[in-house]
Amino acid sequence: MKNIFSGEFKIGILGGGQLGKMLLQKAHDFNLHIAVLDPSANAPCRNLCNRFVQGDFKDFNTVYNFGKDLDLITIEFEDVNVEALEALEREGKQVYPQPAVLRIIQNKGSQKSFYQQHKIPTSPFVLIKNRDDIAQADIDFPVFQKLLTSGYDGYGVQFLENKNTLQKAFDAPSVLEQSVDLEKELSVIVARNAKGEVAHFPPVEMEFNPEANMVAYLFSPAGISPETEKKAVSIARTIVEKMKMVGLLAVEMFLSKKGELLVNEVAPRPHNSGHQSIEGNSTSQYEQHLRAILNLPIGNTAIIQPSVMVNLLGEKGYRGKAIYEGVEEVLKIDGAHIHLYGKYETRPFRKMGHVSIVAPSLEEAKMKAKKVKSALKVIA
């Protein structure tokens, strides 16, 4: 048997963006041999991995040829070629998360049906084939229309106030999901290894940029009751166990003003809602993902200190070679940790980095986060 930590055991990652970069930073601590496949020649992972392959992770032959000489394949982005991963799995390669799990998660209709089948709370929904189906849909407006496939980070999502706004709807297979009278948005990240060991990170609270529909701030711990925390954790653990998934699963949830918890979406990989764990928790989500897929003991997820994560997005009106303003000012803030993703070009609302702020209290961390937000800008 190959020794995982000797460099003989070869791991492949489909996707070479910022999540892969932070995963690689932890993989170096474990002396892991990592190959990366990404379509971009300037992917953030390019200069950190043992082998970089430029190619389309949605193409069967590219993914299959990339994986055939590896021992284990994982992902940093779920919109990849599942058929190729299934072929590799049949040939004895370890693929985590499993292709069967990816098939559920890649299709938002399949996700919703999975929740329904397993009595996991989620917003009322209907599936439609095209724009014309919306007018006859048996659902109360307002609704969110979500493309069945290939939507992420707010892309492929459209808010429809009523049936008079259908002209802006997508004319494609979608989920129509009833809007929630929202109190907060939460996330629970949970990990499971092949032995069936499961551990969760304490819930975090997300605050979104209303224009880009992307996370602006993340607060750890979430400002919720012990009862709500217990229920959120139970839901996340139920999903990963019902899927029998190996790896890391981020479970995004709505907390309604009536106190209901409803699953929004899941992501089978490290996630934006776990960045703060690098400095804020005993084990980071990146280390936990590696522990899970390598069938190692699952790490302690306890909060070391309260933390806030600030997403660093490209400023509106700027497109081109990235210039970072305010870095020195942020470095003067005690407890602030800058993570720049290595993306050469910026554009409006593109994820360019994040800053985690740890402090003895969440209130202090929030105050410092506001200073970070006003000081650090990405322009061109």
Rank of each mutant, 00 (worst) to 15 (best):
M1T: 11
M1I: 09
S6I: 07
E8D: 15
E8W: 10
F9P: 08
L14H: 11
G16A: 15
G17K: 15
K21A: 14
K26D: 10
F30C: 09
I34W: 12
V36F: 06
D38M: 14
C45T: 12
R46Y: 10
N47Q: 15
N61W: 12
N61A: 15
N61P: 08
V63Y: 05
K68H: 12
K68S: 08
L70P: 00
L70Y: 03
L72D: 13
I73L: 14
I75G: 07
L85Q: 07
A87P: 08
R90F: 14
E91G: 06
K93N: 12
P99I: 04
N107Y: 01
G109E: 04
G109M: 03
Q111C: 05
K112D: 01
F114L: 00
F114I: 01
Y115T: 02
Q117F: 12
Q117A: 12
H118G: 04
K119H: 15
F125G: 01
I128L: 05
N130G: 12
D133E: 15
I134R: 06
I134Y: 11
A135Q: 15
Q136W: 10
A137F: 07
I139V: 04
F141H: 04
F141T: 01
P142S: 14
Q145A: 01
L148V: 04
L148T: 02
L148D: 02
S150N: 13
G151A: 08
G151M: 01
G154Q: 00
G156F: 00
Q158C: 14
N164Q: 13
L166M: 04
Q167P: 03
Q167H: 13
D171M: 05
P173M: 09
L176N: 05
E177I: 02
E177G: 04
S179N: 14
S179L: 09
D181H: 05
L182M: 12
E183M: 08
E185V: 01
E185K: 02
L186I: 10
A194W: 01
G196D: 08
F208N: 05
N213L: 14
M214I: 11
M214G: 07
S220T: 04
S220I: 00
A222F: 08
P226N: 07
E241W: 07
K242A: 04
G247S: 07
L255S: 00
L255K: 10
G259R: 00
E260S: 06
L261Y: 08
V263A: 09
E265A: 05
E265L: 03
A267K: 06
P268F: 04
P268E: 04
R269Y: 10
S282N: 14
S282F: 11
Y286K: 05
R291V: 03
R291W: 06
P297I: 05
I298D: 10
G299P: 11
N300T: 10
I303G: 06
L313C: 13
E315L: 08
K316N: 14
Y318S: 12
Y318I: 07
R319L: 13
G320I: 01
V327L: 15
V327S: 11
E329P: 07
H339F: 10
R350K: 11
K351D: 07
P360Q: 04
L362D: 07
A365R: 02
K366I: 00
K366E: 13
M367G: 12
A369Y: 02
K370D: 10
